[in-house]
Design a protein around this nucleic acid. Structure first.
Length: 445
RNA sequence: GCGGGUAUAGCUCAGUUGGUUAGAGCGCCUGAUUGUGGCUCAGGAGGUCGUGGGUUCAAGUCCCAUUACUCGCCCCA
């Protein structure tokens, strides 16, 4: 009986982790440029927070949460966070951020949990990066967040995506639209897919979002939410579009874009990957002016987005930008006999303390095996010590790139290594000392 | 929750109409004269063929179940 990680809970091994770290460093850099501070929030929150924050009617709350009762008396229902906007809003209220400063800008990176069937680009434990901007009701804030999303993709080198943009209005406007849409859809329900008929009762706007051909056909002439927006929302949306255009961010207006979470108002957007599978949303977000109040704070406008990190990684792979990280090491220390091995171990520790990446053999293997290992690890230099060297208090230092080797006294070793590492690797990396007896058929006269 | 596909060595995969000790490439280990890597060559280790039943003289191969993975539906990042 062997154990296996849970379905949808993948391990990330060092080779893959390298890609994650690259992505994370781009994210931190983006956040630095845009002035967002990192928040690290708990994995667990009260189930009620998500129920109220994300929305009772959403699938996330309805069927995808990892919820359980804890050991307290009476037991409390807790939930592994399925997203972070609600938690961040909770933290914003709890720490009275609105009193401390007029604008708060936060970002987060971390695992989220949703009980779903795993498939391409979707896991039960997955990772999101998100921004939250609290305090501004103005279109400049919407634009800043969207531009940050576009900038992230630009920094990563991703171009194969499109930005879809829509406004879903205020709560009142959406309620009005909802009845208008229902009026249009009800006589057509015979033409709709079964799912959409079901959706009509729960959340009619989602019918627009359907991928099914019959639904798309049936809704072709449906009223558009943009047409029912009041002057203020319309103006807001126009300003957002203008600001994006001025920043050179390309987008397409998509009146079918409806976000699945209850807390969104007005601006909604999604960065859609073009060569991903069915799970093609790289990231998405929008404005959520009602959420802070909903989780018990003073009414505060906010905008944000979140990106799926697994999906960004998949997109990078598709674009050939994954780039495997070649193992790179400064120095490998080789000892030939017992005494030399002991020396190698302490020397390795010294080199490490001096800031070099150093490695030595832990298996008491032959010199040949140690050389092979050094090469495999991508070591720049190798330090070799045997009985003679130990007696003479010096070591052979070999530049693995050029093949040059010389004896260096123990006291000068560190300096020699640092000097060697500071020089660029010799351009002719593979000198191939074999086949010296090659005849020269060309240049002879 | 519902459908399709897949499951053989660490990895990627072959495995003929069921028939003897299950293969390849890569990777790993060891050698190719005394203490020197990459290339090449030669050896070697490693698999109860996902698991459990069944059919058969005989199952990696056929049937059933189950689990995992995978791709979709739903929904989302």
């Amino acid at each position: 009986m062997t154990y296996q990680s849970l379905k949808g809970f993948p391990d990330i091994l060092p080779d893959a982790a390298a890609g994650w770290r690259r992505l994370e460093s781009v994210i931190h850099e983006l956040a630095r440029r845009f002035g967002y501070g990192e928040i690290r929030l708990p994995m667990l929150e009260s189930t009620d927070l998500f129920a109220r924050g994300v929305g009772e009617g959403t699938d996330i709350v309805g069927k995808e949460m990892y919820s359980f009762l804890d050991k307290s008396d009476p037991p409390e229902s807790l939930t592994l966070r399925p997203e972070l906007t609600a938690s961040a809003a909770r933290a914003f209220v709890q720490h009275s951020m609105a009193q401390a400063q007029p604008i708060t800008k936060w970002y987060y990176i971390g695992p989220m949990f949703r009980y779903e069937q795993p498939q391409a680009g979707r896991f039960r434990q997955f990772h999101q990066f998100g921004l939250e901007l609290y305090g501004s009701p103005n279109p400049e804030a919407d634009a800043e967040v969207i531009i940050a999303g576009a900038e992230l993709l630009r920094m990563l080198g991703l171009t194969n995506y499109k930005l879809r943009l829509n406004s879903i209005g205020t709560a009142e406007e959406r309620a009005a639209y909802r009845t208008a849409l229902l009026e249009y859809l009800t006589p057509l329900s015979g033409d709709l897919s079964q799912e959409s008929v079901r959706r009509m009762e729960k959340n009619p706007l989602r019918v627009l979002d359907s991928k099914k051909a019959e639904d798309i056909r049936a809704t072709a002439d449906a009223p558009k939410i943009l047409d029912v927006l009041q002057e203020e929302s319309r103006e807001h949306f126009e300003r957002v579009k203008g600001l994006l255009a001025a920043s050179g961010v390309e987008f397409t207006i998509d009146h079918r874009l409806v976000r699945g979470l209850d807390y969104y108002t007005r601006t909604a957007f999604e960065f859609q990957g073009l060569d991903l599978g069915a799970q093609d949303a790289l990231g998405g977000g929008g404005r959520y002016d009602m959420l802070i109040e909903q989780v018990g704070g003073k009414s505060t406008p906010a905008v944000g987005f979140s990106f799926g990190m697994e999906r960004l990684l998949i997109a990078l792979q598709h674009a050939g930008l994954a780039g495997d990280m070649a193992p790179e090491e400064d120095v490998y220390v080789i000892g030939l006999d017992d005494a030399s091995r002991a020396w190698a171990a302490t020397a390795t520790a010294e080199f490490r303390a001096a800031g070099l990446s150093a490695e030595c053999d832990l298996l008491r293997r032959s010199m040949k095996a140690q050389m092979r290992e050094a090469n495999r690890r991508g070591a720049r230099a190798v330090v070799i010590v045997g009985g003679d060297e130990l007696a003479g208090r010096h070591a052979q230092v070999k530049d693995l790139a050029s093949g040059d080797q010389k004896a260096i006294g123990f006291d000068d070793l560190l300096g020699e290594l640092k000097g060697l590492l500071a020089r660029p690797a010799a351009p002719h990396t593979v000198p191939a000392p074999v086949q010296p007896d090659r005849t020269e058929p060309i240049s002879e006269s």
